[in-house]
């Protein structure tokens, strides 16, 4: 897929900011970083709720911007899985890499996905995948179920737990960065930290400091699992035979999975809302987002919870419908629903 020129520009900038986020991980995770995956499992201690306001100094925030030139990190991230699409010497982040189990438009549904997750195999392809996964789960290993994974998300602020880390950068319709956050799972402190824009240096994805997304913009993400391995490498100990789901207010937004036979432990992509959401259907508002990923083979998991604000221009269709309904109802009540006094001779 060849990107439009303006999108290529955005993606180059995104890689720089992602590299900046990566550069700040050691600041956010002073302990646990670099440990083997089997030594960094576990949740934060009960009641662990530190005040991370001002966790980054101004100088460190400046380092984010300077990080745009961290070409070594860019190269480490991209490798051979982020090709130079336009042959300009700069790797391009693809528009996401769908996994084998990702539910695409027109697919049957979430029911099949849940069946795979629960071991109730419904198709030949998933049967082979499940057999391979089941055979490789070590004896005695506790495998969290779908419900148990959800129980991890009991905090009403924000949280990133598990063997993962990631960076998200949000851009407006003109390609200007407006918000960014870095998070490390239980290998660190489980917190998501705001690294750019309003609220920089504070805890990110909370109700007081929502991750700002434009309904006509883009979000670039980079995820890494498990944290502590070789950055962006293939053939590593990444999540094999994994499944994932993203929900808002209990409603599933998207889900999928991949057998990941090469054990890739990093992925990046672009969520282009400006391209995927037609103008008349754009919206604004707040959303509570949860997501999880579980690798059936090696037990790696990651769960996150956060709060997002979708901003952008006034949505003409949704706003128009809301106005017509509210005004029509109000005027109807005022002039056409009041009790009426009549006289009978």
């Amino acid at each position: 897929m060849r990107a439009a020129p303006d999108q290529r520009t955005i993606r180059r900038l995104s890689l720089g900011l992602i590299a900046a986020g990566l550069a700040l991980w050691p600041l956010a995770v002073p302990a646990g970083a670099g440990l083997p995956p089997d030594q960094v499992m576990g949740d934060p201690p009960p009641g662990f709720e530190p005040d991370f306001t001002g966790v980054f100094t101004d100088a460190e925030i400046e380092q984010i911007i300077e990080g745009m030139s961290l070409l070594q990190l860019q190269a480490a991230m991209t490798g051979d899985r982020f090709p130079d699409l336009d042959n300009d010497g700069i790797p391009d982040v693809p528009e996401g890499e769908p996994g084998d189990l990702d539910i695409r438009p027109g697919d049957q549904s979430l029911a099949d996905f849940i069946a795979v997750l629960n071991g109730e195999i419904v198709g030949a392809d998933t049967q082979a995948l499940a057999d391979r996964a089941a055979a490789s789960v070590p004896a005695g290993q506790t495998v969290p179920t779908y419900a148990e994974t959800e129980l991890l998300l009991e905090n009403d602020s924000s949280k990133l737990q598990g063997h993962c880390a990631g960076v998200a950068v949000s851009y407006d319709a003109d390609g200007k960065p407006i918000d960014a956050a870095v998070g490390v799972g239980s290998t660190g402190n489980g917190l998501l930290v705001d690294t750019f824009g309003d609220g920089a240096g504070q805890r990110a994805f909370t109700t007081d400091n929502r991750f700002e997304v434009r309904s006509d913009g883009q979000v670039v993400y980079f995820g890494y699992m498990p944290f502590g391995g070789t950055l962006g490498a293939s053939g590593q100990d990444g999540p094999r035979d994994h499944v994932w789901e993203i929900k808002t207010s209990g409603v599933s937004l998207d889900s999928g999975g991949d057998d990941n036979p090469n054990g890739n432990n990093a992925n990046a992509g672009v969520v282009d809302m400006g391209e995927n959401i037609p103008g008349p259907l754009r919206f604004t508002g707040n959303a509570d987002v949860t997501g999880w990923l579980y690798a059936r083979t090696n037990g790696l998991w990651c769960a996150a919870e956060g709060h997002v604000h979708f901003g952008g221009p006034f949505p003409p269709v949704a706003g128009g419908i809301a106005t017509v309904l509210a005004a029509g109802g109000f005027l109807g009540l005022l002039f056409n629903s009041r009790p009426a006094l009549t006289f009978k001779a």
Partner: peptide, 18 residues
């Protein structure tokens, strides 16, 4: 009608989550 319109407005304004 008033309730539906009000709920949509409150959602667009961020008072009610999507």
């Amino acid at each position: 009608m008033l309730g539906l319109g009000g709920a949509m407005w409150l959602t667009l304004a961020g008072v009610i989550n999507l």
